[in-house]
Nucleic acid binder design. Structure first.
Lengths: 216, 216
DNA sequence: ACCTGAACACCGTTCAAGT
DNA sequence: ACCTGAACACCGTTCAAGT
């Protein structure tokens, strides 16, 4: 991903003939998303940022939707990576794993709010037309399923379809993340302590509820 | 161009001088949102649907953002109304109240997915600049707080700041709704039974978790 | 094979002008 | 007071033409 080119002297300009324009556009799109929000995501601006004409992207993407799908897809991989890193360094008990998973999820959302919204805004992207995007989303969701399954194996989480329990957990975590970035939770956004408290509260509730299911 | 003569039975045309154009635009916007999704939400199209020139909306809204804010605001009132109706006809125990609240929330989202997304997409609307929108959102959130408080009074839900517990509950419900309309939950969307099952599962988990907090 | 520049239809916004 | 029509800058998309 990082541009460790064999020739460090040649940086930009006329080098996109190499076939890296596709990735350059994706990265430029993400950068604009970060700097200007969804408004920054217009094809001509992305092309400009990548140093090519406004027609060049059409050599690599069928249309704007396709670029958006590629940007979203990349986001799901980044999100999954973040969750992996978080669960790897957390204790292996389910409560800690869930909490770290949630922290990583919320962290990604707060660090890249526009990207996060873009990833989940089915309107800017018709999911069904982009199987790669669908696969990337599914692959991220698998991180939640994994943690739930491990929790069940360790008898910390009750029985039941892991997919079902995972949906409950994912919805809870996704809900916090989205309400947070939309600033719908009064007095929480921007307050790290309040955020951590809310996540802890959510996970405690979730964990207790999932445990309850075991004995019910 | 569709000029009806002065027949009083014909209700459209030149009657917006009455001062109802503002509301007509909001309704037209919602209709287009329902029919064409977010793509239908362009100012010129909305104006056309309302039967006025593309410059007319500027007499009632500062810009496109302001129209979007008004449409979102209206959505929050409709959502709150739906939640009210649902909780009114449900049994008064907290579990039933929560479940009916969730059903109404998810129902609104599934019935008006584009509107729902528009309401929660901070990108299309900078929250802070629209106090009325903020108030409408808060007012909807109060429905959740109400149910939580009643549950606490009835000793079904443990102690704690109602606002905190409500955030947990709202995040859970919001998460299901959003993941559902984005079709991120494999095999659930379109299957009424699966939807009801998921909601029940979420609420059971939530309720058990919130109850747990009581004794902890 | 990959990119450019002109062209087209269309959108958000403004403004002088109409009633 | 409220709306229209022309105008401007800009965007998504296409296509003939360049290298």
């Amino acid at each position: 991903m990082d541009n460790n080119d064999s020739n460090p002297l040649i940086q930009t300009s006329k080098r996109y003939h190499h076939g890296d324009l596709r990735n350059a556009l994706i990265r430029a799109g993400q950068a604009l998303l970060a700097e200007e929000g969804i408004a920054g995501l217009d094809l001509r601006k992305v092309a400009r940022a990548a140093g090519v004409s406004h027609a060049a992207p059409y050599r690599h993407f069928a249309d704007k939707q396709a670029l958006l799908a590629a940007i979203a897809e990349d986001g799901f991989y980044q999100l999954a990576e973040g969750m992996d890193a978080a669960t790897r360094r957390a204790p292996t008990n389910a409560a800690a794993q869930l909490e770290q998973l949630a922290h990583a999820y919320v962290r990604f959302a707060l660090d890249h709010p526009a990207h996060m919204r873009e990833m989940f805004s089915g309107l800017t992207v018709k999911r069904a037309a982009y199987p790669q995007l669908h696969a990337a989303a599914k692959q991220a969701f698998q991180r939640v399923v994994q943690v739930i399954e491990r929790g069940q194996n360790q008898r910390e989480i009750g029985p039941g379809e892991p997919a079902d329990l995972s949906m409950v957990a994912w919805a809870q975590i996704h809900g916090i993340a989205m309400l947070l970035i939309e600033d719908q939770l009064p007095g929480v956004k921007g307050n790290e302590q309040a955020i951590a408290g809310l996540i802890a509260h959510c996970i405690r509730t979730l964990y207790a509820g999932l445990g309850q299911n075991a004995s019910a």
